[in-house]
Design a protein around this nucleic acid. Structure first.
Lengths: 188, 188
DNA sequence: CTCATTTTAATACCTAGTCCTAAGTGCTAG
DNA sequence: CTAGCACTTAGGACTAGGTATTAAAATGAG
Protein backbone atom coordinates (compact mmCIF):
# COMPACT_ATOMS: atom_id res chain seq x y z
CA UNK A 1 0.00 0.00 0.00
CA UNK A 2 1.34 3.37 -0.96
CA UNK A 3 -0.64 5.86 1.03
CA UNK A 4 -2.94 5.68 3.98
CA UNK A 5 -6.57 6.49 3.50
CA UNK A 6 -6.14 9.90 5.06
CA UNK A 7 -3.17 10.81 2.93
CA UNK A 8 -4.92 9.68 -0.20
CA UNK A 9 -8.01 11.64 0.65
CA UNK A 10 -6.05 14.75 1.35
CA UNK A 11 -4.19 14.43 -1.96
CA UNK A 12 -7.46 13.70 -3.65
CA UNK A 13 -9.15 16.88 -2.55
CA UNK A 14 -6.05 18.81 -3.51
CA UNK A 15 -5.90 17.22 -6.92
CA UNK A 16 -9.54 17.89 -7.64
CA UNK A 17 -9.25 21.44 -6.49
CA UNK A 18 -6.35 21.96 -8.80
CA UNK A 19 -7.97 20.15 -11.68
CA UNK A 20 -11.70 19.62 -11.24
CA UNK A 21 -11.97 17.94 -14.62
CA UNK A 22 -10.51 14.63 -13.51
CA UNK A 23 -12.74 11.58 -13.68
CA UNK A 24 -12.74 8.98 -10.94
CA UNK A 25 -11.05 6.60 -13.32
CA UNK A 26 -8.19 8.98 -13.92
CA UNK A 27 -7.48 9.62 -10.27
CA UNK A 28 -7.88 5.95 -9.50
CA UNK A 29 -5.01 5.23 -11.88
CA UNK A 30 -2.98 8.06 -10.40
CA UNK A 31 -3.26 6.65 -6.92
CA UNK A 32 -3.13 3.00 -8.00
CA UNK A 33 -6.40 2.11 -6.35
CA UNK A 34 -9.73 1.03 -7.72
CA UNK A 35 -12.44 3.36 -8.89
CA UNK A 36 -14.63 2.30 -6.01
CA UNK A 37 -12.08 3.44 -3.50
CA UNK A 38 -12.02 6.86 -5.06
CA UNK A 39 -15.78 6.98 -5.02
CA UNK A 40 -15.88 6.08 -1.35
CA UNK A 41 -13.33 8.80 -0.76
CA UNK A 42 -15.38 11.39 -2.57
CA UNK A 43 -18.42 10.28 -0.64
CA UNK A 44 -16.63 10.70 2.67
CA UNK A 45 -15.14 14.01 1.66
CA UNK A 46 -18.41 15.29 0.30
CA UNK A 47 -16.91 15.95 -3.11
CA UNK A 48 -19.52 15.80 -5.85
CA UNK A 49 -19.04 13.93 -9.08
CA UNK A 50 -17.28 15.37 -12.09
CA UNK A 51 -20.44 16.57 -13.79
CA UNK A 52 -21.70 18.36 -10.72
CA UNK A 53 -18.33 19.98 -10.13
CA UNK A 54 -18.25 21.24 -13.66
CA UNK A 55 -21.82 22.40 -13.49
CA UNK A 56 -21.22 24.41 -10.37
CA UNK A 57 -18.24 26.09 -11.94
CA UNK A 58 -20.27 26.96 -14.99
CA UNK A 59 -23.09 28.28 -12.85
CA UNK A 60 -20.75 30.47 -10.88
CA UNK A 61 -19.28 31.83 -14.03
CA UNK A 62 -22.72 32.42 -15.45
CA UNK A 63 -23.86 34.31 -12.37
CA UNK A 64 -20.72 36.32 -12.48
CA UNK A 65 -20.94 37.29 -16.08
CA UNK A 66 -24.56 38.15 -15.69
CA UNK A 67 -24.26 40.23 -12.58
CA UNK A 68 -21.06 42.17 -12.78
CA UNK A 69 -18.24 42.35 -15.22
CA UNK A 70 -15.04 41.99 -13.26
CA UNK A 71 -14.01 45.60 -13.04
CA UNK A 72 -17.43 47.12 -13.24
CA UNK A 73 -18.35 47.36 -9.63
CA UNK A 74 -15.98 46.67 -6.83
CA UNK A 75 -17.94 46.37 -3.63
CA UNK A 76 -21.66 46.35 -3.19
CA UNK A 77 -23.40 49.66 -2.78
CA UNK A 78 -25.91 49.16 0.00
CA UNK A 79 -27.04 52.72 0.55
CA UNK A 80 -26.89 55.73 -1.68
CA UNK A 81 -28.15 59.26 -1.51
CA UNK A 82 -27.10 61.03 -4.64
CA UNK A 83 -24.83 63.98 -4.04
CA UNK A 84 -24.99 63.30 -0.32
CA UNK A 85 -23.64 60.03 0.98
CA UNK A 86 -23.35 56.34 0.34
CA UNK A 87 -22.20 53.09 1.83
CA UNK A 88 -20.51 50.21 0.12
CA UNK A 89 -19.65 46.79 1.40
CA UNK A 90 -16.80 44.57 0.30
CA UNK A 91 -15.68 41.30 1.75
CA UNK A 92 -12.04 40.66 1.01
CA UNK A 93 -11.77 37.42 -0.89
CA UNK A 94 -8.87 35.38 -2.20
CA UNK A 95 -8.97 37.28 -5.45
CA UNK A 96 -8.24 40.54 -3.66
CA UNK A 97 -5.18 39.69 -1.65
CA UNK A 98 -1.47 39.16 -2.11
CA UNK A 99 -0.82 35.47 -2.15
CA UNK A 100 2.13 35.79 0.10
CA UNK A 101 0.51 37.37 3.10
CA UNK A 102 -3.22 37.47 2.51
CA UNK A 103 -3.31 41.24 2.76
CA UNK A 104 -5.66 43.09 0.47
CA UNK A 105 -3.94 44.88 -2.37
CA UNK A 106 -4.15 48.62 -2.09
CA UNK A 107 -5.96 49.16 -5.32
CA UNK A 108 -8.83 47.01 -4.18
CA UNK A 109 -9.65 49.36 -1.34
CA UNK A 110 -9.08 52.22 -3.70
CA UNK A 111 -11.42 50.69 -6.24
CA UNK A 112 -14.18 50.26 -3.72
CA UNK A 113 -13.89 53.86 -2.58
CA UNK A 114 -13.52 55.15 -6.13
CA UNK A 115 -16.54 53.23 -7.37
CA UNK A 116 -18.62 54.55 -4.52
CA UNK A 117 -17.48 58.12 -5.06
CA UNK A 118 -18.45 57.90 -8.71
CA UNK A 119 -21.76 56.30 -7.92
CA UNK A 120 -22.58 59.30 -5.74
CA UNK A 121 -22.55 61.60 -8.72
CA UNK A 122 -25.83 61.69 -10.54
CA UNK A 123 -24.18 62.24 -13.89
CA UNK A 124 -24.25 60.23 -17.04
CA UNK A 125 -20.51 60.33 -17.22
CA UNK A 126 -18.49 60.93 -14.11
CA UNK A 127 -14.76 60.47 -13.79
CA UNK A 128 -12.22 60.80 -11.07
CA UNK A 129 -9.93 63.81 -11.27
CA UNK A 130 -7.67 64.00 -8.26
CA UNK A 131 -7.54 61.86 -5.23
CA UNK A 132 -5.45 61.67 -2.16
CA UNK A 133 -5.62 58.57 -0.11
CA UNK A 134 -4.22 56.94 2.95
CA UNK A 135 -4.01 53.28 3.78
CA UNK A 136 -4.19 53.26 7.53
CA UNK A 137 -3.84 49.63 8.33
CA UNK A 138 -3.56 46.49 6.23
CA UNK A 139 -6.75 44.59 5.62
CA UNK A 140 -6.69 40.82 5.86
CA UNK A 141 -8.42 38.15 3.87
CA UNK A 142 -11.98 37.65 5.03
CA UNK A 143 -12.45 41.06 6.59
CA UNK A 144 -15.51 43.04 5.64
CA UNK A 145 -14.80 46.56 4.52
CA UNK A 146 -17.51 49.14 4.80
CA UNK A 147 -16.83 52.34 2.92
CA UNK A 148 -18.71 55.45 3.98
CA UNK A 149 -18.70 58.28 1.50
CA UNK A 150 -19.92 61.80 2.10
CA UNK A 151 -19.96 64.71 -0.27
CA UNK A 152 -17.97 67.55 1.14
CA UNK A 153 -18.49 70.04 -1.64
CA UNK A 154 -20.85 69.98 -4.56
CA UNK A 155 -20.53 72.18 -7.62
CA UNK A 156 -22.15 72.00 -11.03
CA UNK A 157 -19.63 69.72 -12.51
CA UNK A 158 -17.38 68.84 -9.63
CA UNK A 159 -17.90 66.87 -6.46
CA UNK A 160 -15.60 66.49 -3.53
CA UNK A 161 -16.17 63.20 -1.83
CA UNK A 162 -14.61 61.97 1.36
CA UNK A 163 -14.47 58.24 1.89
CA UNK A 164 -13.70 56.37 5.06
CA UNK A 165 -13.43 52.61 4.98
CA UNK A 166 -13.82 50.69 8.19
CA UNK A 167 -13.46 47.14 9.36
CA UNK A 168 -15.47 46.76 12.52
CA UNK A 169 -15.37 50.40 13.56
CA UNK A 170 -11.68 50.58 12.82
CA UNK A 171 -10.65 52.93 10.06
CA UNK A 172 -8.46 51.20 7.52
CA UNK A 173 -8.59 53.57 4.59
CA UNK A 174 -9.29 57.21 4.01
CA UNK A 175 -9.51 59.08 0.78
CA UNK A 176 -10.59 62.33 -0.79
CA UNK A 177 -11.84 62.15 -4.33
CA UNK A 178 -12.58 64.86 -6.77
CA UNK A 179 -15.13 63.62 -9.23
CA UNK A 180 -16.01 65.60 -12.30
CA UNK A 181 -18.70 65.50 -14.88
CA UNK A 182 -18.10 64.97 -18.53
CA UNK A 183 -20.41 66.45 -21.11
CA UNK A 184 -21.45 63.15 -22.59
CA UNK A 185 -19.56 62.72 -25.86
CA UNK A 186 -16.06 62.62 -24.44
CA UNK A 187 -15.26 66.18 -23.37
CA UNK A 188 -12.66 67.41 -20.95
CA UNK B 1 -47.80 23.09 -36.18
CA UNK B 2 -46.75 26.12 -34.19
CA UNK B 3 -43.54 27.30 -35.72
CA UNK B 4 -41.65 26.57 -38.83
CA UNK B 5 -38.38 24.74 -38.56
CA UNK B 6 -36.42 27.91 -39.12
CA UNK B 7 -38.28 29.87 -36.51
CA UNK B 8 -37.92 27.11 -34.00
CA UNK B 9 -34.23 26.77 -34.66
CA UNK B 10 -33.67 30.47 -34.30
CA UNK B 11 -35.58 30.54 -31.00
CA UNK B 12 -33.68 27.47 -29.93
CA UNK B 13 -30.27 29.00 -30.35
CA UNK B 14 -31.48 32.12 -28.60
CA UNK B 15 -32.91 30.15 -25.72
CA UNK B 16 -29.75 28.12 -25.25
CA UNK B 17 -27.59 31.18 -25.40
CA UNK B 18 -29.66 32.81 -22.74
CA UNK B 19 -29.84 29.72 -20.60
CA UNK B 20 -27.29 27.07 -21.57
CA UNK B 21 -28.49 24.80 -18.79
CA UNK B 22 -31.63 23.63 -20.56
CA UNK B 23 -31.91 19.94 -21.43
CA UNK B 24 -33.34 18.79 -24.74
CA UNK B 25 -36.36 17.52 -22.88
CA UNK B 26 -37.07 20.91 -21.37
CA UNK B 27 -36.88 22.78 -24.64
CA UNK B 28 -38.88 20.06 -26.36
CA UNK B 29 -41.70 20.74 -23.95
CA UNK B 30 -41.32 24.47 -24.41
CA UNK B 31 -41.70 24.19 -28.16
CA UNK B 32 -44.23 21.35 -28.06
CA UNK B 33 -42.17 19.08 -30.22
CA UNK B 34 -40.44 15.80 -29.53
CA UNK B 35 -36.98 15.44 -28.10
CA UNK B 36 -35.77 14.02 -31.39
CA UNK B 37 -36.73 17.14 -33.22
CA UNK B 38 -34.72 19.25 -30.82
CA UNK B 39 -31.79 16.94 -31.25
CA UNK B 40 -31.97 17.20 -35.00
CA UNK B 41 -32.12 20.94 -34.61
CA UNK B 42 -29.04 21.05 -32.42
CA UNK B 43 -27.28 18.82 -34.90
CA UNK B 44 -28.07 21.14 -37.76
CA UNK B 45 -27.16 24.21 -35.76
CA UNK B 46 -23.97 22.67 -34.47
CA UNK B 47 -24.99 23.20 -30.87
CA UNK B 48 -23.33 20.70 -28.55
CA UNK B 49 -25.20 18.78 -25.89
CA UNK B 50 -25.91 20.16 -22.45
CA UNK B 51 -22.92 18.54 -20.79
CA UNK B 52 -20.52 19.81 -23.41
CA UNK B 53 -21.94 23.32 -23.19
CA UNK B 54 -21.51 23.33 -19.47
CA UNK B 55 -18.04 21.89 -19.69
CA UNK B 56 -16.90 24.56 -22.10
CA UNK B 57 -18.20 27.27 -19.86
CA UNK B 58 -16.40 25.78 -16.90
CA UNK B 59 -13.20 25.46 -18.89
CA UNK B 60 -13.33 29.06 -19.93
CA UNK B 61 -13.83 30.13 -16.37
CA UNK B 62 -11.01 27.89 -15.29
CA UNK B 63 -8.60 29.35 -17.83
CA UNK B 64 -9.48 32.74 -16.59
CA UNK B 65 -8.91 32.01 -12.98
CA UNK B 66 -5.66 30.26 -13.72
CA UNK B 67 -4.12 32.82 -15.99
CA UNK B 68 -4.65 35.96 -14.05
CA UNK B 69 -6.53 36.38 -10.91
CA UNK B 70 -8.29 39.61 -11.68
CA UNK B 71 -6.48 41.74 -9.18
CA UNK B 72 -3.11 40.07 -9.04
CA UNK B 73 -1.13 41.93 -11.59
CA UNK B 74 -2.53 44.88 -13.37
CA UNK B 75 -0.22 45.83 -16.17
CA UNK B 76 2.93 44.13 -17.31
CA UNK B 77 6.19 45.23 -15.78
CA UNK B 78 8.63 45.52 -18.64
CA UNK B 79 11.54 47.16 -16.89
CA UNK B 80 12.49 47.33 -13.27
CA UNK B 81 15.42 48.60 -11.30
CA UNK B 82 14.75 47.97 -7.66
CA UNK B 83 14.60 51.10 -5.57
CA UNK B 84 15.22 53.17 -8.68
CA UNK B 85 12.70 53.04 -11.48
CA UNK B 86 10.39 50.85 -13.46
CA UNK B 87 8.09 50.76 -16.44
CA UNK B 88 4.79 48.98 -16.79
CA UNK B 89 2.57 48.52 -19.81
CA UNK B 90 -1.18 48.13 -19.87
CA UNK B 91 -3.47 47.97 -22.83
CA UNK B 92 -6.96 49.06 -21.91
CA UNK B 93 -9.33 46.22 -22.68
CA UNK B 94 -13.06 45.80 -22.48
CA UNK B 95 -12.77 44.55 -18.94
CA UNK B 96 -11.25 47.83 -17.81
CA UNK B 97 -13.74 50.35 -19.10
CA UNK B 98 -17.15 51.71 -18.27
CA UNK B 99 -19.64 50.08 -20.56
CA UNK B 100 -21.37 53.31 -21.25
CA UNK B 101 -18.50 55.30 -22.68
CA UNK B 102 -15.52 53.01 -23.05
CA UNK B 103 -13.41 55.11 -20.71
CA UNK B 104 -11.05 53.29 -18.39
CA UNK B 105 -12.18 53.23 -14.80
CA UNK B 106 -9.97 55.26 -12.51
CA UNK B 107 -8.98 52.39 -10.31
CA UNK B 108 -7.50 50.54 -13.23
CA UNK B 109 -4.91 53.24 -13.83
CA UNK B 110 -4.42 53.44 -10.12
CA UNK B 111 -3.92 49.72 -9.90
CA UNK B 112 -1.28 49.75 -12.61
CA UNK B 113 0.64 52.53 -10.91
CA UNK B 114 0.18 51.01 -7.47
CA UNK B 115 1.36 47.59 -8.59
CA UNK B 116 4.42 49.12 -10.17
CA UNK B 117 5.23 51.23 -7.12
CA UNK B 118 5.07 48.16 -4.93
CA UNK B 119 7.14 46.11 -7.34
CA UNK B 120 9.88 48.70 -7.02
CA UNK B 121 10.37 47.92 -3.38
CA UNK B 122 12.68 45.02 -2.80
CA UNK B 123 10.83 43.92 0.30
CA UNK B 124 9.11 40.70 1.15
CA UNK B 125 6.05 42.59 2.22
CA UNK B 126 5.45 46.05 0.89
CA UNK B 127 2.22 47.99 1.22
CA UNK B 128 0.97 51.32 0.11
CA UNK B 129 0.61 53.94 2.82
CA UNK B 130 -0.44 57.24 1.36
CA UNK B 131 -0.95 58.25 -2.19
CA UNK B 132 -2.05 61.30 -3.97
CA UNK B 133 -3.07 60.99 -7.55
CA UNK B 134 -4.36 62.92 -10.48
CA UNK B 135 -6.26 61.65 -13.47
CA UNK B 136 -5.26 64.10 -16.15
CA UNK B 137 -7.27 62.92 -19.08
CA UNK B 138 -9.64 60.03 -19.64
CA UNK B 139 -8.16 56.96 -21.25
CA UNK B 140 -10.13 55.19 -23.94
CA UNK B 141 -10.57 51.56 -24.75
CA UNK B 142 -7.64 50.20 -26.72
CA UNK B 143 -5.11 52.80 -25.64
CA UNK B 144 -1.78 51.59 -24.34
CA UNK B 145 -0.79 53.05 -21.02
CA UNK B 146 2.85 53.16 -20.08
CA UNK B 147 3.54 53.90 -16.46
CA UNK B 148 6.97 55.28 -15.52
CA UNK B 149 7.85 55.08 -11.89
CA UNK B 150 10.84 56.68 -10.21
CA UNK B 151 11.85 56.55 -6.61
CA UNK B 152 12.05 60.05 -5.19
CA UNK B 153 13.13 59.20 -1.70
CA UNK B 154 14.34 55.96 -0.24
CA UNK B 155 14.54 55.20 3.44
CA UNK B 156 14.97 51.96 5.33
CA UNK B 157 11.38 51.11 5.43
CA UNK B 158 9.73 53.74 3.34
CA UNK B 159 9.86 54.58 -0.34
CA UNK B 160 8.46 57.59 -2.11
CA UNK B 161 7.59 56.72 -5.65
CA UNK B 162 6.40 59.05 -8.34
CA UNK B 163 4.46 57.53 -11.21
CA UNK B 164 3.58 59.09 -14.52
CA UNK B 165 1.38 57.22 -16.93
CA UNK B 166 1.44 58.18 -20.58
CA UNK B 167 -0.46 57.31 -23.70
CA UNK B 168 1.73 58.18 -26.66
CA UNK B 169 3.79 60.83 -24.90
CA UNK B 170 0.69 62.36 -23.40
CA UNK B 171 0.44 62.26 -19.64
CA UNK B 172 -2.84 60.80 -18.52
CA UNK B 173 -2.17 60.00 -14.90
CA UNK B 174 0.18 61.11 -12.21
CA UNK B 175 0.59 59.80 -8.71
CA UNK B 176 2.81 59.89 -5.69
CA UNK B 177 2.92 56.77 -3.62
CA UNK B 178 4.38 56.14 -0.25
CA UNK B 179 5.24 52.51 0.06
CA UNK B 180 6.28 51.01 3.35
CA UNK B 181 7.84 47.80 4.45
CA UNK B 182 6.24 45.39 6.81
CA UNK B 183 8.31 43.21 9.05
CA UNK B 184 7.07 39.94 7.64
CA UNK B 185 4.57 38.56 10.10
CA UNK B 186 1.95 41.28 9.80
CA UNK B 187 3.45 44.33 11.53
CA UNK B 188 2.41 47.91 11.39
C1' DC C 1 -6.05 -15.89 15.18
C1' DT C 2 -9.69 -12.72 15.09
C1' DC C 3 -11.91 -8.47 14.40
C1' DA C 4 -12.47 -4.06 12.38
C1' DT C 5 -11.11 -1.28 8.84
C1' DT C 6 -10.25 -0.73 4.20
C1' DT C 7 -10.48 -2.04 -0.44
C1' DT C 8 -12.32 -4.22 -4.36
C1' DA C 9 -15.96 -6.28 -7.01
C1' DA C 10 -20.42 -6.97 -8.97
C1' DT C 11 -24.92 -5.57 -10.07
C1' DA C 12 -28.80 -2.63 -11.03
C1' DC C 13 -30.03 1.85 -12.13
C1' DC C 14 -29.68 6.92 -13.72
C1' DT C 15 -29.24 11.05 -16.94
C1' DA C 16 -28.55 13.13 -20.99
C1' DG C 17 -27.19 12.28 -24.42
C1' DT C 18 -25.25 9.85 -29.64
C1' DC C 19 -26.15 7.21 -33.80
C1' DC C 20 -29.02 4.74 -36.67
C1' DT C 21 -33.13 2.90 -38.92
C1' DA C 22 -37.84 3.14 -39.74
C1' DA C 23 -42.17 4.91 -39.95
C1' DG C 24 -45.58 8.57 -39.93
C1' DT C 25 -47.32 13.40 -41.36
C1' DG C 26 -48.31 17.33 -44.36
C1' DC C 27 -48.06 19.57 -48.44
C1' DT C 28 -47.20 20.23 -53.22
C1' DA C 29 -46.63 19.25 -58.14
C1' DG C 30 -47.64 16.37 -61.87
C1' DC D 1 -55.21 11.17 -56.74
C1' DT D 2 -50.97 10.00 -55.66
C1' DA D 3 -45.89 10.04 -55.70
C1' DG D 4 -42.24 12.67 -53.79
C1' DC D 5 -40.10 15.47 -50.54
C1' DA D 6 -39.28 17.82 -46.20
C1' DC D 7 -40.10 17.38 -41.71
C1' DT D 8 -41.23 14.99 -37.46
C1' DT D 9 -41.55 11.24 -34.32
C1' DA D 10 -40.47 6.68 -32.48
C1' DG D 11 -37.58 3.01 -31.08
C1' DG D 12 -33.50 0.46 -30.06
C1' DA D 13 -28.64 0.01 -29.14
C1' DC D 14 -24.88 2.17 -27.08
C1' DT D 15 -22.06 5.77 -24.30
C1' DA D 16 -19.82 8.22 -20.12
C1' DG D 17 -19.66 8.91 -15.66
C1' DG D 18 -21.62 8.36 -12.41
C1' DT D 19 -25.15 6.57 -7.69
C1' DA D 20 -26.56 3.06 -4.48
C1' DT D 21 -26.33 -1.31 -2.59
C1' DT D 22 -24.58 -5.68 -1.25
C1' DA D 23 -21.03 -8.74 -0.73
C1' DA D 24 -16.61 -10.62 -0.70
C1' DA D 25 -11.69 -10.15 -0.16
C1' DA D 26 -7.45 -8.11 1.72
C1' DT D 27 -4.94 -6.07 5.36
C1' DG D 28 -3.30 -4.41 9.81
C1' DA D 29 -3.64 -4.19 14.89
C1' DG D 30 -4.39 -6.22 19.19
Amino acid sequence: MRLTKKERQSYLSQALEQNPFLTDEEVAKKFHVSIQTIRLDRLELGIPELRERIKHMAEKKFDHVQSLSPSEVIGEVIDLQLHKNGISLLEIGLEHVFERNQIARGHILFAQANSLAIALADWKVALTGNASIRFIRPVQLGEKCIAFATVAEAHDSRLHVGVQTKVQEEIVFQGDFEVYRVSDDRGN
